[in-house]
Design a protein around this nucleic acid. Structure first.
Lengths: 231, 231
DNA sequence: GATATCGCTTGACGCAGATCAAGGCGCTTG
DNA sequence: CAAGCGCCTTGATCTGCGTCAAGCGATATC
């Protein structure tokens, strides 16, 4: 594995407290692979043979049922996904596909489970990581059940703005995927952007500028117990 | 703590691998309390001072935002709730109230976190427990995003039926709470029951009889990746 | 035993958001 | 450069579900 990738994975909270020897052992058994855009990495219902780490690019987690399907989350570098299935040795609950070219590190699940037994630091880090994942899904569920679609869009934009230093930022994925993540159709996302124009939202292709955060916040009513993905 | 309660808590997977001395220490610092029905135990946003265990009765987890509120989960004996907030030492994301008289064991969060450091068996069990919680919320999110309200009701009934040996069973909570859990209004839950009559669903007060599981399943389309809460 | 209260049901209505259809724009491809 | 395709937008229409309002039955209260 290239030194840069090695270093960035090592820096993850999940692997930070791990003994050096154990981390080396884990990465020796792992594969770092490049993928083009729009490649399906895992399929819902399949066996959880690998823990995946997005090193570069972006991965969309989605789920299907009865012909419908919905985006569950977007995973950005550097973070892991489908940790829980790996640990429980249970089928994946979500499928995953790349949204752009990137690099994925795949670590055999069996090695992760072994490491859990022998490295207490890793076990503790895992507890914290899983607790965070759990809380993030709970927030997403609250977001879905307690807000209208326009409110979800508005709060999404505010959250994105906070991650970016400048005045404007680019949507990280296609609008159709964003719409699905927010639990709405692409048509209604367009209309929502239109409705938010009067609250200082300017959308031009993938670029977004929020010219009046005050006004936008007043209608969006952000709530740390839903929107703060770091707590 | 009475022997019966002690034993049932000890039997939880979460505490099963823990050293005896550590479990004793944990329970010594804990409070077992009786509560009447409809008492709020914790408030969303509050500090996570205790890990709670439902020993008897039933607890409703719910969340509020902007005047709306929604039931997030129903917790039956014997299981823990708000594990993640306890571990991360972060504010609760959900409020909790009893739906009937019962007993709750409250273990100081600080003790749980200490135990995580010193008892590797506990840390491992915690990983598995959190992974299960995470997967259950993911399933709930899929349930919400991929199904109509009538489908959610139908699948809920099928799930309940599986837990009960006999021909009929009682709804575990008031219909209004059930409606909220299923992401709909009480009015629409009534109408959904009406619509399901033609699929062999007979509802009389809190009692439910499914006279034609085949027909019900045909319309509900249960899916283990959404409905199987044990995997 | 009359009355009030609460949980549930039923009907009428309105709205948010899905669906259907058409058209525009920027990209790729020959 | 033209043709074709994918993504997005806009408008028209449909519908699932929420809201509002009234009524019903069981339990509680005096």
């Amino acid at each position: 594995m290239p030194a840069a990738a090695f270093k960035s994975v090592r820096a993850l909270a999940l692997f930070h407290d791990m003994a050096d020897a154990n981390f080396d052992r884990l990465t020796k058994a792992a594969y770092l692979q490049r993928f083009p855009a729009h490649v399906q990495l895992i399929e819902e219902g399949g066996a959880a043979d690998f823990l995946h780490v997005v090193v570069e690019g972006c991965v969309e987690l989605f789920a299907s049922h009865n012909g419908r399907d919905t985006t569950m989350a977007l995973v950005h570098p550097v973070s892991t996904f489908i940790l829980a299935a790996t640990l429980k040795d249970r089928p994946y609950l979500m499928s995953a596909r790349t949204t752009m070219p990137g690099q994925i590190l795949m670590i055999p699940s069996a090695d992760i489970r072994t490491m859990l037994e022998i490295d207490p630091g890793f076990a503790r880090a895992m507890v914290v990581e899983l607790a965070s994942c759990y809380r993030n899904v709970v927030k997403e569920l609250k977001n879905q059940k307690l807000r209208t679609s326009v409110e979800r869009v508005a709060n999404y934009l505010i959250r994105q703005q906070k991650r970016h230093p400048g005045m404007e930022f680019a949507l990280p994925v296609e609008k159709r995927a964003l719409a699905s993540l927010l639990g709405m159709t692409p048509e209604n996302l367009s209309r929502a952007f239109g409705a938010l124009r009067s609250h200082g939202v300017e959308v031009d292709g993938p670029m977004v500028r929020l010219t009046d955060i005050e006004a936008l916040s007043a209608m969006a009513r952000p709530n740390p117990l839903i929107d703060d993905f770091s707590s």
